[in-house]
């Protein structure tokens, strides 16, 4: 565990707390993509199956359990409690275009050709693109509440911080995880546009609005 990773994980934790805070205070899931949230549940469930057969540390188990339960809770809030505030008509990204290639990639690139390892690999590839329905929705509506953009910024920061973590591990621990690194770089790159608007507008006190 190095500081980049610790801060990355804390940023990931913060992003989920921001997401829950946004939903509870505005009593609305407006501006959130159900598809992205459902993809995150898929990511966490397929990746953290190792909770049942591979104990790493208390920290590791607690975080994995938190990510699975909180993401399922968000789905419940979107589909049940605040259902009337969810607008599927603007959440139109075709998820099958993400799932298909991820299945294919995980069958080709994995560390062992076993069910659990293929699922792990699938979850890594899927996580790298899971934010796309959300970013697509943002692009369509052209604006977002500040709190929603803070959520996305924390999520993006988590991914960005994993990159120096891998560099650190490469040099200091002589360890490398090519699948996670490749997917992680792709995932971080997807946030570049968002971060540009976030830094130039939201952090300057302006509304998050995309040019028409």
């Amino acid at each position: 565990m190095n500081l980049f990773r610790l801060f990355g994980d804390m940023s990931h934790l913060a992003s989920i707390l921001l997401l829950l805070y946004k939903i509870q205070t505005t009593r609305s899931v407006r501006g959130l993509s159900f598809k992205t949230q459902a993809l995150y549940v898929t990511v966490f469930v397929t990746r953290y199956l190792d909770l049942f057969y591979d104990y790493v540390s208390l920290y590791n188990s607690v975080m994995k359990t938190f990510f699975i339960t909180s993401s399922c809770y968000v789905l419940y809030l979107m589909k049940k409690k605040y259902r009337p505030t969810n607008d599927p008509s603007i959440d139109t990204f075709r998820v099958e275009y993400l799932l298909g290639p991820c299945v294919l990639l995980s069958l080709i690139f994995n560390y062992r050709f076993t069910f659990a390892e293929i699922l792990w690999s699938f979850s890594i590839f899927l996580e790298s693109v899971a934010i796309l329905p959300q970013l697509f929705m943002l692009q369509r509506t052209g604006e977002a509440e500040a709190i929603t953009t803070h959520y996305l910024a924390a999520l993006g920061a988590y991914r960005a911080l994993y990159i120096p973590n891998w560099i650190y591990r490469y040099w200091m621990e002589d360890q490398v995880d090519p699948i996670a690194v490749t997917a992680g770089i792709v995932q971080t790159a997807l946030y570049v546009d968002f971060f540009y608007v976030y830094f130039t507008k939201v952090l300057q006190g302006q509304r998050f609005e995309l040019p028409a």
């Binding site: 994980d9 590791n60 995880d177």
Partner: peptide, 10 residues
């Protein structure tokens, strides 16, 4: 380099 323990990272 060695393969990282990929079940350790979140």
């Amino acid at each position: 380099p060695l393969a990282a323990d990929h079940h350790d990272e979140l």
